[in-house]
Design a binder for these strands. Structure first.
Length: 460
RNA sequence: GGCUCCAUCAUCUAACGGUUAGGAUCCCAGGUUUUCAUCCUGGUCACAGGGGUUCAAAUCCCCUUGGAGUCACCA
């Protein structure tokens, strides 16, 4: 049985890095018919936890991830933590420390001055006397005084930490009685039966502390997989500016969940030369042991490429559905197939596609001088008039090919190249010099609208 | 600063002692197209540096350099 979990702190939204570790945990659990838990780490009683959890679930829903069971809030598990703290106290594996914050501060100051590592001096470790008056105590765990702690990591290998360098009797309960992060994480993961902890490698140096807790409580230590961070182009932690925004923002920008997930799974993981992974393939092929050890850089170009790939291979029905979010309603449009075929291969995102569609459906608001100069020459008017005439004479114009035949006949009759009619016609229809095939555009808007737009340009 | 991790094209990556170091994105060129995009073909570009080990090193070891993470009564 494999149990994984995603355990974000409530920041208000799910960002791209979080989604990646969530995805990997999800894949590994599902692949093994295991369980994927969602736990909100809100031990500091931040006010926004429930709303934040909902935001995460909403993002999960959009990309198609689904956690198992109910969402666990650490803030509602206080009693459990207190029990375990008491247990350690009873067993003499933890103790109360009456040192004040000021004293601690002073000690650290001193140590830093002596170029020593700031570290608690164990002054209350074996304390049996009467506590100082009116002091609230913190609870410290008895950490090993020497030797080393080895983290057996599925990604990084065995990582050895020397107790001397990193550990002291760290605080597991604050003076107000609330437990601290490293304690609750270990307790929760153990109690919830988490077998495989997949998380960012910024947690690697926390792991020895958590192992101390596991051992003190007699819990089995899970497997750890510390996955490398995602960096920006400067090699720094991803920030909002770089795209580490709310996952839902990707929906707004017109990315599809398939592309986003495919992009994320390929960051730090690969399977031979394969670039495209469906959810089914990810489930079949993913193994956290294959995750790379080094950090990777977030680059939008690849995401864009993947997104356009998925857009190109999407059915028009599905496209139509997704475009509604971007304000384009095509359900009852009779030329919907032609329209979508014309734009689906030219857009990187859905919002871009929505724009292309409106450029076709809405007549040009005007004509730019530069555009006219480049594409509307002296003979253009004559060509367009001839074309209009031919259009009026033609019968049964429905398909792009029907319109193409008309264009062809005019070109042949006049003994000119396609370019002579293409450029001015494109300006008339779209107001610009590039865009979808003209035969498709005309088939979409119909003869009347086509004639009208040509007329508008001629008399401009 | 201590500790830990990391190091292959601009970017994501393949190679798990033996390859002309492969694929993809980006970029460039050519073809296709009425235009742009798509698509097709081709091209440019990498083992951070230095020592070892070995018949043989991108791969194993050490050092240097560079980058990142972490060191709280934050999570």
């Amino acid at each position: 049985m494999v149990v994984t979990r995603f355990a974000p702190s409530p920041t208000g939204y799910l960002h791209i890095g979080g989604l990646r570790t969530a995805l990997l945990s999800y894949l590994w659990a599902r692949k093994n018919n295991g369980t994927f838990l969602l736990r909100i780490e809100d031990t500091d009683f931040s006010r926004n936890d429930e709303a934040a959890a909902l935001a995460i679930v909403e993002a999960f829903k959009w990309v198609g991830l689904q956690h198992d069971g109910k969402i666990e809030y650490q803030s509602s598990r206080l009693e459990i933590y207190k029990q375990h703290i008491q247990q350690l106290l009873n067993e003499g594996k933890a103790y109360k420390c009456y040192m004040s914050k000021e004293e601690l501060e002073a000690l650290r100051e001193e140590q830093t001055q002596r170029k020593e590592r700031p570290k608690y001096d164990n002054r209350y470790r074996e304390f049996t006397g009467t506590p100082p008056e009116g002091r609230e105590a913190v609870v410290r765990i008895k950490a090993p005084l020497e030797g080393s702690i080895t983290v057996h990591d599925g990604v990084k290998g065995d990582v050895v930490f020397n107790v001397h360098d990193i550990l002291d009797d760290f605080i597991i309960a604050r003076s107000d009685g609330t437990p601290t992060y490293n304690f609750v994480v270990a307790v929760d993961d153990a109690l919830m039966g988490v077998t495989d902890v997949i998380r960012g490698d910024d947690h690697l140096s926390n792991t020895p502390k958590q192992i101390v807790v596991y051992q003190a409580l007699g819990f089995p230590i899970p497997k750890f997989f510390h996955v490398p961070m995602i960096h920006n182009h400067d090699g720094k932690k991803l920030s909002k500016r770089d795209g580490a925004t709310d996952v839902i923002a990707y929906k707004t920008m017109g990315y599809t969940p398939e592309a986003l997930l495919n992009f994320l799974v390929r960051l730090g993981w690969s399977h031979g030369d394969q670039e495209i992974f469906s959810m089914v393939e990810m489930l079949e092929l993913f193994d956290p042991s294959d995750i790379n050890r080094s950090a990777s850089v977030y680059n939008v170009e690849k995401l864009d490429w993947l997104n356009s790939h998925y857009l190109k291979n999407m059915t028009n029905e599905k496209l139509c559905e997704l475009l509604e979010f971007h304000g384009v309603m095509l359900i009852s449009h009779d030329k919907r197939e032609i329209l979508l075929d014309a734009v689906k291969e030219r857009a990187k995102t859905l919002s871009e596609m929505a724009m292309l569609i409106s450029e076709i459906l809405v007549k040009p608001a005007g004509f730019e001088e530069a555009v006219l100069k480049k594409g509307y020459k002296e003979d253009s008017k004559e060509v367009l008039e001839k074309f209009s005439t031919a259009l009026r004479a033609a019968k049964e114009l429905h398909l792009p090919s029907d319109y193409h035949h008309v264009m062809e006949s005019v070109v042949t009759e006049m003994g000119i190249g396609f370019g002579k009619i293409g450029q001015p016609l494109r300006i008339a229809l779209l107001g610009k010099l590039s865009g979808p095939g003209l035969d498709s555009v005309m088939a979409i808007i119909g003869v009347e609208e086509t004639l009208e737009r040509i007329n508008t340009l001629i008399s401009y």
